[in-house]
Design a protein around this nucleic acid. Sequence first.
DNA 1: ACAATGACTTAGGATGGTTGAT
DNA 2: ATCAACCATCCTAAGTCATTGT
Length: 690
Amino acid sequence: MNEHPSVMRSLVVYKAGVEYIAKWTVKSTDGKVKREKENGFTIPVVKSEPENVFYPSPKQEKSLKREREENFESEFKPKKIKIENDKAKGKKRKQDDEDVKPKKTKNNKKGEVADGKKKAKPEPEEKWKWWEEERYTDGVKWRFLEHKGPVFAPPYEPLPGNIKFYYDGKHMKLSIATEEVATFFGKMLDHEYTTKEVFRKNFFKDWRKEMSSEEKAKITDLKKCDFNEINDHFKAQSEARKAKTKEQKLKIKEENERLLQEYGFCLMDTHKERIANFRIEPPGLFRGRGDHPKMGMLKRRSRPEDIIINCSKDSKHPKPPPGTKWKEVRHDNKVTWLVSWTENIQGSIKYIMLNPSSRIKGEKDWQKYETARRLKKCVGRLRSQYHEDWKSKEMRIRQRAVALYFIDKLALRAGNEKEEGETADTVGCCSLRVEHINLYPEKDGQEFVVEFDFLGKDSIRYYNKVPVEKRVFKNLQLFMENKAAEDDLFDRLNTSILNKHLQELMDGLTAKVFRTYNASITLQQQLKELTSPDDNIPAKILSYNRANRAVAILCNHQRAAPKTFEKSMQNLQAKIDTKKDQLSDSRRELKSAKADAKVRRDEKSKKTVETRKKAITRIEEQLMNLEVQATDREENKQIALGTSKLNYLDPRISVAWCKKWEIPVEKIYNKTQREKFAWALDMAEDDYEF
DNA sequence: ACAATGACTTAGGATGGTTGAT
DNA sequence: ATCAACCATCCTAAGTCATTGT
């Protein structure tokens, strides 16, 4: 296993940020009064009814009444002050604390009710525990929002004169606009995209739109275009980048850091929060996934005039670059985005939003798991209901019930319908077509087998053979009767109908909640089943990964096998072999040492025997760890664990497991993940139950 | 009803820095 | 010191789902 950063690190990072807050706060202080209060426990204001009062309630959130919208389903534990848990594990830190700025002690509430004098420099507080505070109701997402706006893509830099484009074998100097788009294509020459007909056709069409009339007249066939020098140029550039000296690299790094510091944070309410994507997407060629009809189209450069800024009225608005204007500056605190623009390929809106570690994302994430936990409580009832519904007289109800069964059992996505010709042809549950399943009354010794074969999100193939209840099977036969392959399997159903139904069954229930629920419950149950108390840490972690893998398989999270997979597997195997040899050598040595000791019967030789024994134990353990590693890697070849870990698994399950078995949480979550799940790290105890 | 829009979550691949072996 | 493997981060596409508009 490799090194893990010590726990302390995140605390440090956070503290580093604190000073900055101070600046912001001060600066915007004129906002005053109100802001101040918001911060501590005092908060609020929230206009709405006071029914939301804060439930100091402890773990059982059982009784939640709550109206939809901002419900509090969460359990609120009383605020405890516990210090960042970096407790323990103190030993390893090494790089971590480098910068520790002497922060002060402060206890949690930063708001300091107590001393609240504003001006006071904001004391260095510890990490803000937003999860110990009340939430907004009414769809209000924030009361104050200030940021610096987006960072635009750098302007196009024309090619050096010696890099030429050839048309039909002859050098041709392109106008700037035409050249820029040519470089987008030239850069990608090695990519198989550029060999696809659709890609080429779309590219060429859009490229021609950028051409001057002379260029357009001349360049009429993409096959006659020679982008090789352009391609070489960018390759060389990338090499050059890699070959830069340390100083040069450092300089770039510093510049990035500066940009991050300036644009990468915003002030939301009284807290400085990290922004996820503060850069506007650069122009380029659209790369859709799968068979996308728009692949190769030109994604145009966004200008300030395309950008909408969202911030609070009383904040200092970001300024557009000199000589330009924003499309609009609005003050909508019912949404979470800071910046938006409309993208030209699909006409959809893109946003700049906050990082997952932010309060606004964290709260929502927490809430998502609470909804899934509520489903846990009533899933039994829902299941019996849809079983009943398989017998309904109404076709729409049967379809709904069978679809729901798939969503529940197989963790299929809802499956919205999509506009044909605008996107790749992919489906989810409600949009399955007859051609996506095959029915086998009997297959491989099992009865009533349904074979699924379709492309889901991101054009990832879903292939599965599942035995189902006879009733489901019969229903499917019925749904498919007299239909053509390309007809909808569930012709009386769509996601809107399904979700409306689910909403009636449980507040906040939608199709995707089943994925969250089934993923989390599977992890919990697999961990219970797979963790052996006597295993060492690496073996326990293997168990964790296997539990995680069970979920990834359930959710069909795949990845292309790493290009270097075979090789790295071989290397690992070689290591194992070496270790084995070492082990037999050691054993031989032990034997001879024993023989020797028998003869000599002196202390020294006895000691040698002991040493040898120990060495063997150590080697055995190393060997075992290597083998565990190999197993883990092999099993993981085409499975991506990250997606479920990040989006489907209630982090409190993992935290509790770590606590229970004394596994350092950094073995499970890296720094970014720990930041995202700070709420869970702080609140989950070893007995947490999903 | 239902289509379109808007906001927000979920997703895999690309990129580039770090690390550990040689 | 060099190099490849590894992995965190970035990137942005592709979903979900509620709301709005017709």
